[in-house]
Design a binder for these strands. Sequence first.
DNA 1: GACAGTTGGTTGCAAGAGAAACTAATTTCC
DNA 2: GGAAATTAGTTTCTCTTGCAACCAACTGTC
Lengths: 164, 164
Amino acid sequence: MPAQPGPADAALKLDQFLPYRLNVCANSVSTALSAIYSARHRIGVPEWRILVTLGEFGLMTAKAIGIHSQMHKTKVSRAVAMLERRKLVARRVNCDDLREAFLSLTPAGRDIYNDLAPGALEFARQLMETMEPAERAALDRALSKLTERSAKIAADIAKGGNPG
Amino acid sequence: MPAQPGPADAALKLDQFLPYRLNVCANSVSTALSAIYSARHRIGVPEWRILVTLGEFGLMTAKAIGIHSQMHKTKVSRAVAMLERRKLVARRVNCDDLREAFLSLTPAGRDIYNDLAPGALEFARQLMETMEPAERAALDRALSKLTERSAKIAADIAKGGNPG
DNA sequence: GACAGTTGGTTGCAAGAGAAACTAATTTCC
DNA sequence: GGAAATTAGTTTCTCTTGCAACCAACTGTC
């Protein structure tokens, strides 16, 4: 058993390493999806997430959008600013708290949302149909568990520096 | 059934949308992992991937590293340059083809690899143990299928603009 | 009611990323 | 043997992103 250089002692294979595989898969899926919507409208991932979030909830503050769509507040801020410039989202300051504003889709924004949502759902459906129902369920559970577990591990590292 | 704004007609829910969930999961896992290795050595994801690839294969060109680790050639170029500056990888020009060079870990690079690999494997193990064996297998198959399918969809879009 | 601390949101800045242009070496084809 | 096309790798330019600092408004607490 070589303790020195060489392929022999490598138990770590990148293409079987779960974090890497997750990244590659997520990236591939994300690229394909954004090929769908960025072709129809000049829109990036952050803008897409905001449209979808507002499409679902109707009226939200930037902060709430950030929480729901897991985006940094600066990303939300800039994406909203861009959508506002294009008159796709409207801003109405909350008079009970002048710091924040309620955001919503304009009719034009709603049109784009209605134009894109079916394609996105169809895309998701096409992905789903590559899997057995049981596989789908397993994937769903796995993604939740992995997200949760890795967040906890990261938090532990940030806190103590060592696992717990 | 409202055809207008409002939450009611939203069949598209971001937090159940597969591409989004994949992204969030991959990101969470990736962040946790890089918390592990970037704490011990000042290293980013591209550098990490190169270390692991060279750790596994021993001797490779930049091009081959890029293919194996799914990284753009500019990313590989810069990460390799950085690792070279730190004397963690060595470059030996191929005298049969002066355009390319064979890269490999220096002893110092091998040390870092040996230092990081166990932690990375342990991390992957901790993720794995959140899942049943059957779930793990399902996840594995699912990731492969999703990656493949989405790549195909994206290629179809790039080609014809329409699915096939 | 004023001062300290917090919170929603924006902005300045520096690092990271890809596209395209570029260099140098190699292959192809006549 | 030499021009045209390819290929490995680097560099330049530009856009994105995240962190930190910041501003303005709000919430205590005294």
